[in-house]
């Protein structure tokens, strides 16, 4: 019990409180509790035992390393799922044993064998001493005087100015070409045009209007998309979903005359942030986006009925060609996909 020279008696010594009325403002830190030795520090047999545990753990590590090397040479991979799985499992278990053995051994060593008596070290204020600071300020002042910058105002401007300008030498060429053509009007058009056939994704077979039965859903790409210079970019804008509705179920149409005998084609790119909207529930005619769950009613002009999207999915006006295949009447009449600043201009 630490008895410090203080105004009052120590707070923890109760019987004295009654006789020593002046009470301190704060409690006194009682100081570090007494250190208790571990069993291994006093019992030689326990000491031996703790050493053996550490040795055993290091042995596990070595065995793990050997096991991993054996697995590497003995177990081929890449023939089928079973060999890949087996290789991964045994290499991994070997690696884990090799690492955990070392880790647990070192920690066990530190915990059970190294001294566990807590030590105390004093902290020092982080701020540098007043003389040091004075010297530092003096050095800086000397340097500034040496440089002569305080007397030459123009020099200051020149330094700041040229340093501020020089990054342009890197930034301008970078920004100039990093965005490709910078022709952002491409967001507003897709490769759909009058007479272009609707084909099945991914096989590319054209679609006969007669085959599109009520309740079916068709994932559609424009004919010949693979022959365009940038098929993925075109596909990212042009994908379409085709459904046929019972005329009695249709509540409204987005583009009058844009459908063909109850067959509707809508952009498959969500007007929220651009995921493919593809979950079609044929009984309710609801189209759900699996990313953020915007729900569109295909029977009602692809209007949003739930979720974070605002605008209906743009409709692709379609008809049939003389062979009965579905074709587009034109490109989309508005930009597809997520909203952007000047999409209406």
């Amino acid at each position: 019990m630490s008895q410090v020279d203080n105004h009052g008696g120590p707070a923890d010594n109760l019987p004295e409180l009654r006789t020593a009325p002046p009470v301190p403002e704060h409690f006194e830190n009682p100081g570090l509790p007494e250190h208790k030795p571990r069993l291994g520090d006093v019992d030689p047999r326990a000491d031996k035992r703790r050493e053996r545990i550490v040795l055993a753990l290091f042995a596990v590590s070595t065995l793990g390393t050997i096991g991993m090397l054996v697995a590497f040479f003995a177990l081929p991979t890449g023939r089928d799922v079973a060999t890949i799985h087996r290789s991964n499992l045994w290499l991994g278990l070997g690696l884990a044993a090799s690492l955990l053995g070392i880790g647990l051994a070192a920690i066990q060593w530190a915990k059970s064998i190294m001294s566990n008596e807590e030590r105390v070290e004093q902290r020092h204020p982080l701020q540098s001493a007043p003389q040091v600071r004075q010297a530092a300020v003096r050095n800086l002042a000397e340097g500034v005087k040496d440089s002569g910058i305080s007397r030459r105002g123009l020099l200051k401007t020149a330094v700041v100015g040229s340093l501020a300008l020089f990054p342009l030498t890197i930034a301008v060429p970078l920004i100039g070409d990093v965005g490709g053509s910078w022709d952002v009007s491409k967001f507003k058009h897709t490769m759909w045009r009058k007479g272009l056939r609707l084909t099945i994704d991914p096989s590319g077979r054209p679609i006969k209007a007669a085959d599109v039965t009520i309740g079916s859903v068709w994932h559609v790409i424009p004919d010949g998309i693979d022959k365009t210079p940038d098929p993925l970019e075109e596909k990212a804008k042009a994908i379409v979903l085709v459904v046929r509705l019972d005329p009695r179920d249709v509540k409204s149409e987005q583009i009058p005359g844009g459908s063909y005998q109850g067959i509707f084609a809508y952009s498959k790119i969500c007007t929220h942030v651009g995921c493919p909207v593809a979950l079609y529930e044929q009984q309710t005619h609801h189209l759900l986006c699996p990313c953020h769950q915007s729900t569109f009613d295909v029977a009602d002009g692809a209007r949003v009925i739930f979720g974070p999207a605002k605008r209906p999915l743009p409709q692709l006006p379609i008809t049939v060609d003389d062979q009965g295949y579905l074709v587009a009447k034109s490109d989309f009449t508005q930009p597809v996909g997520p909203s952007f600043w000047d999409r209406l201009r």
Partner: peptide, 16 residues
Amino acid sequence: GFFFVVFGVIALMAAT
């Protein structure tokens, strides 16, 4: 030692 334990636990997860 704890570095080896962290790596080891991750290796165990990756194996299984």
